[in-house]
């Protein structure tokens, strides 16, 4: 096997990405008014239990039919103004991006993922102070799953979003300490 290239190291996103990375409709992956739309929401918290108001979350998921092809158009740009056009509302891109607000909260409006096995959204967490991003999964149901089944019960619970009223799912992300979210490493 040939010598593999060494990877470019990760760095923190820092505090000043707010005018660069978030985009309008970043958290609206589902077409407006879609009857099957769900909302994944929650807080991002640090090791002292304080909310993190400067985290950025990237989401990737299967389409409702299970497709992992994705589609362009998450952040459609307007060449005449240099601004954003918003999503077209036709294609399901599978990609969402939300910065936490001053309360450390996020909300993602999307369609139910149709991946094989238990439905889940993949979440990539960035924050000031976090020198290398963290991956986790927000499972929308509990059941048999190779990853979940490998975890002790209290750790397993951190990956399962709690279903609420009106097709909402609560999924908090705790970077450290009690109830620390399970973070993943892909090998």
């Amino acid at each position: 096997m040939t010598e593999r290239l060494l990877p470019t190291p990760s760095h923190t996103i820092g505090p000043f990405y707010g005018h660069a990375l978030p985009f309008p409709d970043g958290g609206r992956v589902a077409p407006q008014g879609h009857p099957e739309a769900i909302t994944l929401h929650g807080y991002v918290l640090d090791g002292a239990g304080e909310v993190i108001p400067d985290a950025l979350l990237d989401f990737w998921q299967a389409a409702p039919d299970g497709s992992l092809e994705g589609a362009p158009g998450s952040m459609r740009r307007d060449p005449s103004t240099g601004g954003f056009l918003g999503r077209g509302g036709v294609d399901f891109t599978g990609f969402g991006r939300v910065a936490t607000d001053a309360d450390g909260r996020y909300a993602l409006h999307t369609l139910p993922p149709g991946n094989a096995g238990l439905p889940y959204l993949s979440v990539c967490v960035f924050a000031r102070g976090l020198v290398h991003h963290l991956f986790t999964r927000a499972y929308l149901a509990d059941g048999a799953d190779p990853l979940l089944d490998s975890l002790p019960a209290d750790r397993r619970a951190t990956l399962i979003a709690a279903e609420g009223a009106n097709r909402t799912y609560r999924f908090d992300i705790r970077l450290q300490g009690e109830g620390e979210t399970v973070f993943l490493e892909f090998q």
């Binding site: 362009p72 891109t93 990853l147 892909f186």
Partner: peptide, 26 residues
Amino acid sequence: LRHPKQPLVAVDGGDPETVELSGPVF
């Protein structure tokens, strides 16, 4: 206060149905 203290949990990338093996397109 912003780094996990628990070790990361390994996910075997050998399963082609793993959602994270694909990604967004632009």
